[in-house]
Amino acid sequence: MPGGGPEMDDYMETLKDEEDALWENVECNRHMLSRYINPAKLTPYLRQCKVIDEQDEDEVLNAPMLPSKINRAGRLLDILHTKGQRGYVVFLESLEFYYPELYKLVTGKEPTRRFSTIVVEEGHEGLTHFLMNEVIKLQQQMKAKDLQRCELLARLRQLEDEKKQMTLTRVELLTFQERYYKMKEERDSYNDELVKVKDDNYNLAMRYAQLSEEKNMAVMRSRDLQLEIDQLKHRLNKMEEECKLERNQSLKLKNDIENRPKKEQVLELERENEMLKTKNQELQSIIQAGKRSLPDSDKAILDILEHDRKEALEDRQELVNRIYNLQEEARQAEELRDKYLEEKEDLELKCSTLGKDCEMYKHRMNTVMLQLEEVERERDQAFHSRDEAQTQYSQCLIEKDKYRKQIRELEEKNDEMRIEMVRREACIVNLESKLRRLSKDSNNLDQSLPRNLPVTIISQDFGDASPRTNGQEADDSSTSEESPEDSKYFLPYHPPQRRMNLKGIQLQRAKS
């Protein structure tokens, strides 16, 4: 015994090295194993092979420090690593049964499904019991997946119906949107047309105001020219009257000059006056001389005659003075006559000038009245044309509004008919989907599995289990394997941990 101590140590070291070499393959693929292994699927088989106990299973599945599946799978690998070579062998058998691809990844061999460990530990009855539990578990999982698949199909059909409904609603909204954009385009076109009409109206108003201003300026210029013409006519008439007055005065002077006595007659009258003065002096001298030589009687007679002569001279002087006064009065009367005649001529000139001015103003008033009548006639014609244009424009607008209203009513009726057609199509689609759903539900009910399987069917299934373990590994792997896509769409199922009653199965096998 003492001599065998070193050999035992060498043997233990060799086993430990082999164990480390075995687990080295697992550690190399630890990331892939932790990512894809579900500990809840492996722990029943590991407990059946007595590699882990209930406490280890509870620690792996329910520990609060292991929230994710990767953490739980890593903890399970750590626990199996502590179990040595047996933990490695049982772990590979569980991978061979549940995850053939991972088994091939770790060992590089094809899975054979021999279950040597569980046969050694529990015997064939334990293997049968384990396989029966796994089959029931798989059936329950398949039923749950079928239910989930039916629910998802129903949800899918519902979503398809909602999608069709949303599509129809979208078509309806597109119809309304198209109608909205069309009405918006019509409104924009009408606004552009309105702005264009306003611009045209403004341009016409500006043109009309400009023409009116030009016409008023032309009328004012015409009036100024007419006033200048009238003033020139007035000056012409005044000059004609002055010329006529000057002509009359010149004719009067000419007549006075023609009626003036001649120079010879004046000289002859002056000679006669001198001769008479000479004779008068001679007679006076004779009379003076006679007075001195005459007697007293003759002197008395001469005195009487002288007195008579003096009286006659006085009378004559009075007559001469009277004649002079009369001549002066006649001259003054002639001057007054000439003055009055001049005033008369001036008044006649003024009267004729005023008459011509009156005629001029009368003509001017007639011209202004004619212009006013023409302006009123043009204004009435413009008003009439404007009223006709406004009436025609309003009539066109009324007809346009009428046609637009008819078009809008027809478009609304068309839209309502399209919407009604879309709604009826939606109703038809809904009815078809309901009919299809009812038909599929009836087919699913016919094809669904019963909840409680008979014992004979279970025994028959387990009677055929042994050949399947040898020759149909691919079928078992397809039913027991969970793909990543299934984990996305289906909830994980945790079967209840219970042991099955095998009395009925044993009785059935005894009868057979």
Rank of each mutant, 00 (worst) to 15 (best):
L131W: 01
L33V: 11
K137E: 08
M12E: 04
A40P: 06
E121F: 05
R35C: 03
L105Q: 00
D146N: 13
M132F: 15
D10T: 10
S116Y: 06
W23V: 00
A21K: 10
G108V: 06
N29M: 02
D20R: 06
S94W: 01
I70G: 01
V60H: 01
L33F: 05
L92S: 14
I79N: 03
R114G: 11
K83M: 05
Q139T: 11
D58A: 12
K143W: 09
D20N: 13
D58M: 12
L131R: 06
P6V: 12
C28T: 12
L76N: 01
T14G: 07
L102E: 14
L105S: 00
P64T: 06
F91S: 01
S68L: 11
E19L: 13
A73Y: 02
T43A: 08
M132H: 05
P6Y: 11
E122Y: 04
K104I: 00
L22H: 10
D58Y: 15
V89M: 13
D9Y: 11
M12S: 14
L80C: 06
P6F: 12
I37A: 02
E7P: 09
C28A: 09
G74C: 05
A63W: 00
Y36F: 09
L102R: 00
K50D: 12
N38G: 00
D20E: 12
A21W: 02
Y98C: 05
A144I: 13
K145E: 07
E93N: 06
K145R: 13
I52E: 08
E7V: 12
E59A: 00
D146L: 13
A144W: 11
P6S: 12
E96W: 02
G123V: 15
I136S: 01
G4T: 12
A144S: 12
I79L: 05
G87I: 02
G126C: 14
T14C: 05
E59Q: 01
A63I: 00
Y103P: 00
T128R: 05
E121S: 05
E13Q: 07
P44E: 02
R72W: 03
E122I: 06
G108W: 06
K50S: 11
M65L: 10
V120M: 02
E121Y: 03
A144L: 08
K137D: 02
G84A: 05
N133M: 14
L76A: 04
V90I: 14
N133G: 12
I37C: 03
H31S: 08
I70A: 11
I52P: 12
I79Y: 04
L46P: 07
V89R: 02
W23Q: 02
L76W: 02
Q141E: 09
P111V: 07
R30Y: 04
S94N: 01
L46G: 10
A40L: 04
Q141F: 10
D20C: 08
L77A: 01
A40K: 06
G87N: 00
F130R: 15
D17I: 11
I37E: 02
Y11H: 14
H31Q: 07
T82S: 07
H129T: 14
